[in-house]
């Protein structure tokens, strides 16, 4: 049983990495907390649901469309909000409040449009029957979603470490002022990062019906907490640390659900607080208040 929990945890870890990585990219590049991250994920899930229900699009196909669509949405939102926000004295704090407003807006719009009933997609769309992975049987939909997540995280890695624009993005993450001084077009880099962040949120939404169960317009808030737990665990502002956080989160969640299921929903909260308190600086390499 424990082996199964760990294996399933790994698969979910890949998925939770995908859930957290967009949030982290945006925070890392522009110190903006996208509190509406979970709600963009929810929108992605609904998009996939309707594309399948009405047009019979395979989730993989809708995923592609959603990444592109959300990417452009992200670009638009960036230019609408972020430069103005960053002109303020306390941009990080104000960003939390602003994107909380965006979250409320999205949630309200979604519940007006879709109602509050639960929507789900049959796992069989992504493959029939259980798949055996290292001797452990798991639903094919899990494996499929986990594999796509892994692939996407790898693509983010390639972007950040192998492509010129990604390397510039990392320069902005390390020191925005220096990057500006060095003539990097910080505004464009940030806008693209914001688009990618939203695209990734939408993409992780596509697989939410298979990994998280049914979706409603109200799931955004809970997903946010999980996404924050994952990113804080693996260093906020460091997208690849997110993978470590995702795997730790996935495995501990599966272990909790196996052995202590009634307390499982405490986990993201306690992990978050615990990590923040024990290693407030070390884990995410950012100074806290000194005095």
């Amino acid at each position: 049983m424990i082996v199964h929990a760990v294996m399933a945890g790994l698969v979910f870890g890949c998925y939770f990495t995908l859930v957290g990585i967009g949030l982290n990219l945006i925070f890392g590049v522009m110190r903006i907390v996208n509190l509406a991250h979970g709600d963009f994920l929810m929108l992605g899930a609904f998009a996939a649901f309707w594309l399948y229900t009405l047009l019979h699009w395979h989730p993989l196909f809708s995923a592609l469309a959603i990444v592109i669509g959300f990417g452009f949405l992200g670009l638009a939102l960036y230019y609408l909000f972020v430069p103005r926000l960053q002109a303020a004295r306390d941009a990080e704090m104000l960003s939390i409040i602003l994107f909380f407003g965006v979250q409320q807006f999205i949630e309200a719009l979604a519940s007006i449009a879709f109602g509050s009933s639960e929507r789900s997609l049959p796992g069989a769309i992504l493959g029939r029957g259980p798949v055996r992975l290292f001797g452990q049987a798991m639903p094919a939909a899990w494996i499929f979603s986990g594999a796509i997540s892994l692939l996407t995280v790898a693509l983010v890695y390639v972007y950040l470490y192998r492509m010129r624009i990604g390397i510039l993005t990392r320069a902005v993450m390390v020191n925005r002022e220096e990057a500006l001084a060095a003539g990097i077009n910080v505004d464009r880099i940030s806008a693209i990062a914001f688009g990618i962040g939203l695209g990734l949120a939408g993409l992780s939404g596509v697989f939410a019906p298979f990994m998280l169960g049914s979706v409603t317009p109200a799931i955004g808030g809970d997903i946010n907490l999980s996404a924050f737990a994952v990113t804080v665990l693996g260093t906020l502002g460091n997208p690849l640390g997110t993978a470590v956080g995702g795997v730790i989160f996935g495995i501990s969640m599966m272990l909790m659900q196996t052995y202590l299921s009634s307390w499982a929903n405490l986990l993201p909260n306690l992990l978050l607080i615990g990590v923040l308190l024990i290693r407030p600086t070390g884990l995410f390499g950012r100074e806290t208040r000194r005095a």
């Binding site: 907390v33 704090m93 907490l225 924050f228 909260n269 306690l270 607080i273 407030p280 806290t288």
Partner: peptide
Amino acid sequence: PLLRLSGAYFAIANLAAAQA
């Protein structure tokens, strides 16, 4: 101890604490 955290970290940790 949460007061040691700054900005977004405090806000998120405080939310997590209330949820817990």
